[in-house]
Amino acid sequence: MLRIKNLEAGYATLKVLRKVTMHVNPGEIVTIIGANGAGKTTLLKTVCGLLRSRDGEILFDRQDIRRLSTEEIVFRGCSLVPEGRQVFAPLSVRENLVLGANVQYRRGKQAEVKNDLNRMFGLFPRLKEREKQLAGTLSGGEQQMLAIARALMARPKLVMMDEPSMGLAPLIVRDIFGIITRLRDEGNTVLLVEQNAKAALGIADRAYVLETGRIILQGQAEDLLSNRDVQRAYLGRDLDSETDI
């Protein structure tokens, strides 16, 4: 589904990603874990065209998307739930969701939008209760749900999520991770970036470890979960405070 080869990207003079190679197969949850500043967000932004890559290859559905605009990449079915939620604060919850379905209109599938809206309200009943509320007045957890739902409204083949658990209470994190699992079980493909390594490895099929812009480890999620280096670097210190899924 997604194939990245020797990707290099950064900001102005700063080189962030160095020869990143990875892939995501259809129907998997793949997670990328790594410390602050490792380049996880940079990687996702580069894939969806918000940031131009310097070198390498990004294939989505076997086609090179490296030079396409963000709008086109989203249209082709690759959506991002950005870091820090980024909902449209002055718009209502419903308007946020309808805007998420923007590409569906372009695909001529406006008839499905209503159905999808109900599907989202089924997935996130809290959003249904707050349908008319302005997104900026939602709680952090509700905004995260809205951001995820908005991305799903585009009916993506691959949904990438950038730290969906950031700043959320353990109970909400569990809800959100439950929903990610459910999405996979319904046949969706998810690329999940997380700081909460234990929780992410708990639901993922495969995982990559990103450190200062390089992939230093990869493998089955359960293997990484029991890997000593990973345990020490990403799971060790505050094992008890991590959320259990």
Binding site: C48, V74, F75, P82, Q86, V87, F88, L99, A151
Partner: peptide, 10 residues
């Protein structure tokens, strides 16, 4: 409201 988020909505 949010230019990048709008682009991510296509």
């Amino acid at each position: 409201a949010n230019r990048d988020a709008a682009r991510l909505c296509g």
